[in-house]
Structures are given as C-alpha cells and as structure tokens.
Simulated assay, not measured.
Amino acid sequence: MSYTKARIPTEVYHLTKKENLDSILSEKRIRRFGDTECWFCRDIPDMLRYMEYTVLNEGAPYIGVGGRMMYYPKFEPSEHILLKLTPQKWEDKWYQWNQVVPQNASAETKAQAAEFSSLKVGYRGDLRFSKCEVIELEPILAEHIDQDESTPAMVM
C-alpha cells in the first residue's frame, strides 16, 4: 500500500447503513472506527463502481481493519443509504490509497488496481461536515444494474 496526497474535495459521498443515520446527523461527523481514515467517493458513478469492487462482490475476501481476512456478506440495498457531504473545514488531510500489485502482475490486474485506487479518497481522522443530503440507494442501484444489463458486451 502507498498513500499520496489527494486534492481537497468540496463534496464527497459516503455509503452507510440506515441504522447509523441518526447518530451521524446528530454528531455531524463520519467516524473512522479503528482505521486511520474514513473513506468516500467523489461522485455517484465512482461510488457505484467502488461498490462493484467491494460490497456487491458477495463472498469475496478482503483485508479488514487490523489485517484480518474477511468476506463480503450479502449486500442488502434496502438497509443502506448514500450521504452527500460537504466537509466542514478546508483541511489538507485527504489521501488516496494506491493499491500495490506485484511488478509481474498482468496489465489487467494493474489497470484494475489503478482504477480501484482512484475511485475513493480517505480523510485522516473523523470527518466533520457542514451539510448532508440523504440519498436513497435502492433506486440508484436499480438504475445502475438495469444500465449494465442493457449495455451490450464487447465482442473481440
């Protein structure tokens, strides 16, 4: 893993469970819960693609906080929401995590690692926000899935 400074965003999107909404709104912050950063995407298309790599990839392994091997559970869209947030302060605490792959990795693997790394941005610490818009995830996800199914596959 390697970190690089990221440009300071004026707004970010965060995926969370609906059950967390009341505490997030009352505290006006996103907590990092044991990680160094809390993670966001810069727009909805990036969030949807990030979700394809992560939470929508049911059963796939990932490394959790503390280095523990974990597996993505079944994702329930009805239990989640997107938050469109305006950070409270203009702080230089934003980083991109660049996934490192072996030098002998395939070009496809390297491209996927680069894409995955570019989809998200981390904030060092708990992010306080000044504005929050709650966005229902289910309609956005349903539209995204419909578009994917209607897009013809490339034939080579």
Score class of each variant (00 low, 15 high):
Asp35Ala: 13
Gly59Glu: 02
Asp43Asn: 15
Lys28Tyr: 09
Asp35Met: 07
Phe33Gln: 14
Arg42Gly: 00
Ser26Tyr: 11
Pro61Trp: 07
Asp35Cys: 08
Lys28His: 13
Glu27His: 13
Pro45Met: 10
Arg68Pro: 03
Ile30Phe: 07
Glu37Asp: 15
Tyr53Met: 06
Thr54Pro: 01
Glu52Val: 06
Glu27Ile: 07
Ser26Val: 10
Phe40Gly: 00
Met51Thr: 02
Met51Ala: 06
Leu56Asn: 05
Glu52Lys: 09
Ser26Asn: 13
Lys28Val: 06
Val55His: 00
Ala60Thr: 05
Pro73Ala: 14
Trp39Gly: 03
Ile44Leu: 06
Tyr62Ile: 05
Ile44Ser: 01
Gly34Lys: 12
Met47Trp: 01
Ala60Gly: 08
Thr54Asn: 13
Arg29Trp: 06
Arg68Ser: 14
Glu37Tyr: 15
Thr36Glu: 14
Tyr50Leu: 10
Val65Phe: 12
Gly67Trp: 07
Arg49Ser: 08
Asp43Ile: 04
Met70Pro: 03
Asp46Cys: 11
Arg29Cys: 09
Phe40Leu: 05
Met69Trp: 14
Pro73Gly: 14
Tyr71His: 13
Gly67Pro: 01
Thr54Cys: 11
Arg68Met: 14
Lys74Asn: 10
Glu58Leu: 04
Phe40Tyr: 08
Trp39Asn: 04
Pro73Cys: 10
Tyr62His: 12
Leu56Tyr: 05
Ile30Glu: 03
Asp46Pro: 00
Met51Arg: 01
Ile63Phe: 08
Asp46Lys: 10
Cys38Ala: 15
Tyr71Phe: 14
Arg49Leu: 10
Met47Asp: 00
Tyr50Ala: 09
Tyr72Glu: 04
Phe40Glu: 00
Leu56His: 06
Phe40Val: 03
Ile44Thr: 02
Glu37Met: 15
Cys41His: 02
Lys74Trp: 08
Tyr72Val: 02
Cys41Lys: 01
Asn57Val: 04
Arg68His: 14
Ile30Asn: 04
Ile63Met: 11
Arg68Ala: 15
Arg32Ser: 12
Thr36Lys: 14
Cys38Thr: 15
Cys41Met: 08
Arg49Met: 08
Leu56Glu: 05
Ile30Lys: 06
Asp46Leu: 06
Asp35Thr: 08
Met70Glu: 12
Val65Leu: 12
Ile44Met: 01
Lys28Pro: 03
Lys28Met: 12
Leu48Pro: 00
Arg29Leu: 10
Cys38Trp: 09
Gly34Ser: 12
Tyr72Asp: 00
Thr54His: 11
Asp43His: 10
Ala60Val: 04
Trp39Glu: 02
Ala60Glu: 09
Pro45Asp: 07
Tyr53Gly: 01
Tyr72Gly: 00
Thr54Lys: 08
Tyr72Met: 01
Asp46Phe: 03
Met51Cys: 04
Tyr62Gly: 05
Trp39Val: 04
Cys41Asp: 04
Tyr50Pro: 00
Met69Ala: 14
Tyr50His: 11
Asn57Asp: 11
Pro61Ala: 14
